[in-house]
Design a protein around this nucleic acid. Structure first.
Lengths: 342, 342
DNA sequence: CAATAATACTAAATCGATTTAGATTTTTGC
DNA sequence: GCAAAAATCTAAATCGATTTAGTATTATTG
């Protein structure tokens, strides 16, 4: 075996105790008054034998694994994939690793996955939760593993959370549509709309239209039957009491499904139908018409979440006094909602 | 702490040894002739105290962490994000977890990341490698950690690898373009074209055209300067000795960058310029024109790679006799290459 | 020069599981 | 009723690191 080299092997070869080797390798040589010469011999042998510390053993002793768990609904979704990459980089900068889990918006599956992560002794969790009540996560956070919520929160002052300005973003989209002359908005939501992010996007959107006396129709589609639900809706668009003149897709998946239907049916955007989306994707600016979207500040959200998690892990923060951090969003106006000018 | 419950706690409360508790929990009760009654009491107390085994301790003793490392160039790329999701599911089905690392096509970074993963005692590695020679990975695989390459291989009979039928896919695209009447193909490759997948795609493409006396122009762009390199190319298209009438993007990133340029310059596809891509994306079938693409069998590739890895991990296979598995691809013809009919 | 301090190092305990080797107790056969 | 066999269970070693509580040895000081 290339690496059955242990601390003992180093110690034996150098002719010192493994305590000393450990101290040297952990940079505590100075503190423990270990002579420069000895240090050098240790480093030399470490290099010679190509010693690599067994992280498992270290974790058992220290109680720290240098691993964080990232729990999202689906890592293959572009939004969470980007998030994963950013967390990976943030973690790697500290020599930490990330284990990623996809819940498919299933609260029970989420609990199973989090249990696995806890058994693996992750130092902390970043969770885009599908839970509907806070108690379970709260007790974990309180007694065991630090948790920071991302993208979705579970109400005030219970668990630290970093979210996009969902309500504001929804309102921005609504105001824009209204200014463009759209009057019959249809909100394409998810049947899991209890999750805070989607709910607030919809609230912000609906409230803004309501201010001007316009009522929104809300239609929910299933996370696991997205395309077929959306297709079914489009097949019956004309049968609706009021035929919508624009659509608000609450996330990038919904928007893509809608675009699929729109494309298949040859519906003309933005004339026949306006389209806006919460969450921006690279291809939205490539296609014709470009899709008006609210861009989420993923990088900022991740950095803040990571910072909060680290404060909790290192115990530099009072875990009972937590806040929801809301990061501003940006409206990218493109042709899909420009009724006036088309 | 919610979970400072250890095997000892269970043993003490039940009034047996921790050996027994461990045996019971690992399903070895029968084998060791432990009475039904005792088992039941153990299970009851385990549930009562909400015992969760410490995976770190278990890993140290058994030498198995139940973790595999997935090393790719960038997890936020749709292709690898999908891959990650599939591996996650495959691993989860066996109670295993996945740690994901992004190398940015940097061979040294890849080595650093793999070293971290090995220190974490991962049971195996699935790597879409950026290495240019096989020796380093080979020695790891031989003496230490099982490795299966995915998407890219490093030559015959050195490391198990699962790849798409890259050469065939390239040829399929070339034949199609030729049949459509395109005669001046430009290959948009990557400066990291030494990697087998890209190289073979290009080879297959170029060879097919050569059969019919057509020479391809090959233009490489940088992984870290994709958009600007592509933009620069498009700015000078006319200045090229032969103006291309179609473009072959060697992967989805390159295609998206090309589309960005195409869209910005108002180039008309497929009339002015045909476009095909190796690697299919959901949005390729939504936009107008749809993008002709070779679809990679990601799921099959992942399943095969996972199977191979598991054979290696469980020692059911001779590690020195390895093969490259090539999985068939599928050509999805869309409007972006239909010169004839447009 | 003895007492004290500083320097350089180490033995052994520990983290929480698994596993080996063996110890009891009970049952069975004759 | 007693040895052998079967049925249950356990003590202790182990994985490979970190950390606590020291121990020698040498240098300094009054």
């Amino acid at each position: 075996m290339a690496n059955r080299v242990t601390l003992d092997d180093i110690a034996r070869k150098v002719g010192v105790s493994k305590t000393l080797v450990s101290l040297v390798l952990n940079g505590k040589a100075e503190q423990f008054g270990i002579s420069r010469k000895t240090c050098e011999r240790v480093f030399q042998v470490v290099k010679e034998l190509n010693y690599r510390p067994n992280q498992t053993a270290r974790s058992l002793r220290t109680g720290k694994t240098g691993t964080i768990g990232l729990v999202v609904s689906d890592i293959s979704n572009a939004f969470y994939a980007q998030m994963a990459r950013i967390f990976e980089d943030l973690a790697a900068a500290q020599g930490h690793s990330v284990i990623i889990c996809s819940t498919d918006e299933d609260a029970e599956k989420e609990q199973r996955l989090i249990t696995v992560l806890r058994n693996r002794q992750v130092d902390g969790l970043v969770v885009s939760t599908s839970q509907r009540e806070v108690s379970w996560l709260l007790s974990i956070n309180k007694y065991d593993t630090p948790i920071v919520l991302i993208d979705r929160h579970l109400g005030d002052n219970v668990l630290a959370a970093v979210v996009a300005a969902n309500r504001t973003g929804g309102a921005l989209l609504a105001r824009h549509l209204k200014e463009q002359g759209y009057r019959h908005p249809l909100v394409l939501g998810l049947s899991t709309s209890l999750i805070s992010s989607v709910a607030e996007r919809i609230d912000g959107f609906v409230d803004e239209f309501k201010k001007h006396g316009v009522t929104c129709v809300i239609h929910a589609v299933g996370f696991n039957s997205l395309q077929s639900d959306v297709d079914a809706l489009f097949a019956n668009l004309k049968a609706l009491p009021v035929k919508p003149d624009c659509i608000f897709a609450v996330n990038n998946n919904v928007a893509t499904a809608a675009l699929q239907s729109i494309s298949a049916r040859g519906i003309r955007v933005p004339i026949q139908l306006g389209l806006v989306c919460f969450d921006d994707l690279p291809y939205f600016s490539i296609i014709n018409p470009g899709i008006t979207a609210v861009e989420q500040p993923i990088s900022q959200m991740c950095r803040k979440a990571f910072e909060l998690l680290h404060q909790q892990i290192s115990g530099n923060i009072d875990r009972s006094n937590v806040s929801i951090y809301e990061i501003p969003v940006k409206l990218n106006i493109r042709e899909s909602s420009l009724k006036k000018f088309s």
